[in-house]
Design a protein around this nucleic acid. Structure first.
Lengths: 274, 274
DNA sequence: CGGGACCTTGAGGCTCGTCAAAGCTGGTGG
DNA sequence: CCACCAGCTTTGACGAGCCTCAAGGTCCCG
């Protein structure tokens, strides 16, 4: 696997066109000429190892980054040495938007495993924007997506039960991996339970127990960090149905089809409510 | 009061300089000339009445808005007809940043009371930015503040107990009102308990109970929507100390001074934990 | 093989949401 | 002016959901 990454890395030195992420990383609808230009400003950095920081909070903002391989945790350190895990960045995704406006990073980013990124120096990107309308527009679109992301997380934390949070987390990962050409049903988590629980505003133990429960219910198989989603429709229902606060209307009665494995304490109670 | 607002409104037709919010609304450090230019592009809209929308989600983005008087609720409607209350805008504050990137509003904004706003048509603002470097910079700063705001809210929802959330909410309001020249200790809430609880990710009843408890403890006086903060240092401690998830370290033992009114169930338990 | 980081599991109980009912307040109409 | 109603707010009882504490597994690495 490591060797594989190394091999790819050499490719990237040559051209974005050969990058397996090319079609998802910056799906700009740019012309060949424009892509060439963009390629030229890219600063390919040497791979980071686990625990290494891409940037720290407060650092001046120099680049947007695209993850080629590996994964990154974006978080905000808080007063007491704690942290708030903000999001996880997968291959083919971008980060660094957090500082565009203020000129300084408002988050920190750390590699969760051996990770390589492309850097787009921001001042050069800006110049390119003046030349290519398309690029400008695309960046704005991406920025908007960042904000939408934050809003979803807010929604999740304000309104959703623990099980809905975890379900949502898994589905989101699955979706994003699928878009990048990985399997949507089977993947490895690169982040610890601690990171997950922090991200979702839960206790580690709760996350652990939920994984166990989901597995008992036949929704997925989990062994340490290896996940296989077995019943995605059912997982989706978990996400949609449950909103403890602002309850009221709990979606139509609609017979939950299948309810495999069933017969788990909390689950039974919940079924009764529907 | 209404008459008062009407009187002010006429003033605004004339000049920003006479606006009591002038020094807080856009503290740009602009020259007199620049301010004049800015003034010229302002579109003063007729006052909105309670429940009227400034913009709806999905609408094209036309302006940034500054609230002159009254207050506004910014929220995101969700599938089931629910909503997620995002923030409240007070006099002298701006809104409309949510759509700059995407061109469409990602939130809705509704007046909580009779409210008047100034609109800065965005296309004209952009032109001005090209002329005045300062304005450009200032907008970026404001944008950065918006994001920081979101992050704080995330932190609050992910990590803080109900009492810390309400304390934080009140302190934040108090701070902002102070900046705008209002009393920091005594004010009226223009939003319903429902809005507050939604914003904080709590049940209405919990908010109600917390108000009652805070009052019993001598932290504040509350009667319907009228608030007087009596013991701000103590309220600040509530905000800082308590973080249920990711608990650990619960700040030093330090004898909580005074604990007026004391002897309330939850409070006693908490004291025992310290 | 020992130590440490990470993960799981169990027991117990606090917080906060849910449900139900009653109190207030402002508006409307008689 | 009062009666009445609708919407907001408060209060109480109850227990579900999740956190805390504690201990034991599992994996990795030197």
């Amino acid at each position: 696997m490591d060797r594989n990454i190394a091999a790819k890395f050499i490719d990237y030195q040559v051209s974005c066109k050969d990058c397996c992420m090319a079609n998802v990383c910056l799906p700009l609808g740019l012309s060949a000429v424009e892509l060439d230009q963009l390629m030229k400003i890219i600063d390919r950095q040497s791979p980071m190892s686990r625990g290494e920081h891409l940037f720290q909070i407060g650092e001046p903002h120099k680049s947007l980054y695209a993850v080629r391989s590996g994964s990154i945790k974006v978080y905000i350190p808080t007063e007491g040495g704690e942290e708030q895990v903000h999001r996880f960045i997968l291959p083919g995704e971008l980060l660094g938007f957090d500082a565009i406006e203020g000129g300084k990073h408002t988050c920190a980013a750390v590699a969760l495993e051996t990770t390589s990124v492309c850097a787009f120096p921001y001042h050069r990107l800006e110049k390119l924007c003046h030349t290519f309308q398309g690029l400008d527009h695309e960046l704005h679109r991406l920025f908007g997506k960042e904000i939408a992301n934050e809003h979803d997380l807010l929604q999740l934390l304000a309104k959703k039960s623990a099980e809905a949070r975890l379900a949502s987390f898994l589905l989101d990962l699955s979706n994003r991996l699928k878009k990048r050409g990985f399997s949507e049903r089977e993947f490895n988590l690169t982040m610890s339970r601690h990171d997950i629980s922090n991200h979702l505003g839960l206790a580690v133990e709760t996350v652990s127990r939920l994984f166990a429960r989901f597995q008992n219910e036949g929704l997925l198989t989990v062994r340490r960090r290896h996940i296989q989603l077995q019943n995605m429709p059912e997982i989706k229902e978990l996400f949609v149905n449950v909103s403890p606060t602002t309850s009221k209307r709990r979606i139509a009665p609609a017979n939950r089809k299948g309810n495999i494995g069933g017969s788990y304490r909390l689950r039974k109670v919940k079924a009764a409510q529907v």
